[in-house]
Amino acid sequence: MFRLPRLAATATIVAAAFTLLVPTAASAGEPSLSDPRTVAHFSHSAGETPENIALEPDGSANVTLAFARQVVRVDEHGSARLLSVLPEVSNPLTPVYRSAVVTGIVRAKDGTLYVNYATGTSGTGIWRIGPHGGTPVQIAQLPTDSLPNGLALDEKLGVFYVADSARGLVWRVPLKGGTATIWAAGAALQPLSEIARFPAGANGIKIHNGAVWVSNTDRQTLLRIPVRRDGVAGTIETRATGLVGIDDFAFTGQDDTVLAALVTANEVALVRPNGTHSIVLTAPEGLSSPTAVAVLEKQGDKEKTDGQDEPEKQEKRERTVYVTSAAYFAAVRDPNLLTARLEDGEEKGQD
């Protein structure tokens, strides 16, 4: 396994206080998680705090290590290879953190990786990394007082969407790089002023079913923002509430069911299209301040006989969930990458 370089300083994060809500019990027939296992561990003292994930087709995970300023690729056996290191900043003035941090990551179809880098300087913005790693190149700059967190890519439209946790808005940036413009803003995206020690508004972000979906950590909400035909943001809709410490999230399939990382609650929640949720992963299963979720689907053949003489082959869907834990708030400081099997309700208990 590649030995990641150690950093001298240990990042210190101050937790915000949240009111815990009782989630709805799991319903029969809905997606569930099984066989959770931790596939890779990182060093919290070295700043190796896993923040976000972008998956390769072979199941490898490209992971940003926020305070180490690194991007690594973890294979299915848990071996990590260093892909890139974002440039050091001598006097970072990053909102909230006061340290340079690499946050959201996405993968283009050609394998190119793009990451958000927050520094409180002109280096704040989107950076490009080649498919096999190497020296990162900044392609877009964001204001120095912004905190780019979640990152989403729409290759069809040729644009990025960036969730800004400090300013509480969504930026839109051309895929080729260049000028960032404010795409969506409003109270629903902003942090809560009363949580002054650790403000975090718009955080995770995904594109799904003709809309940009955004989590707001302080407000404990999951939001949907329709993308109009002219590309302009539609009216912000609140789709779920009471998600304590929601960070980044992922959709389980074609519908609007979501798996959300609850960073301060130390849980992963299954959020249903109607807005209710249940907890599907907890600390005893390996979570340590979960920050992001990703889902990889593979298609395979499954034999089905149905009483016939010759077995009939049908397509079997295999989905794997990846969860990063940064160990920011957990009692057990174990930054790691965890995987689990995602099953449809009717699949559970079947061979």
Rank of each mutant, 00 (worst) to 15 (best):
L4E: 00
I53E: 02
S32L: 11
T257A: 15
A8E: 12
E267Y: 02
G168L: 01
P226R: 13
L223K: 01
R128S: 01
Q141V: 15
P273R: 03
R172E: 13
G125K: 07
G104P: 04
V74H: 04
V101S: 01
H277E: 10
G210M: 02
D58M: 08
A118V: 05
T181P: 02
K156S: 15
G253I: 07
T235L: 06
A8Y: 06
D351M: 09
A163K: 00
V173G: 05
G210W: 04
S32I: 12
D218A: 08
A140K: 08
N266P: 04
L342W: 01
V159F: 06
G150H: 00
Q138G: 04
G134H: 09
S122L: 11
P199M: 14
T264Q: 14
V96E: 09
A233F: 12
Q314D: 11
A187L: 09
V71R: 01
V293T: 02
L281P: 04
A61L: 05
V14C: 08
L65R: 08
W171C: 00
I207E: 04
L113N: 00
T12S: 15
D309F: 11
G345L: 10
S27K: 14
H41S: 10
K316P: 04
V85K: 11
L337W: 05
N203R: 06
A265M: 10
A28P: 07
A108E: 02
I13L: 15
Q70M: 15
T282P: 00
I139M: 14
V332H: 14
L281T: 11
P191D: 01
G178Y: 09
A187H: 09
S60A: 15
G345F: 12
E194P: 00
V258E: 07
D256Q: 09
A61G: 03
I236G: 00
T235N: 05
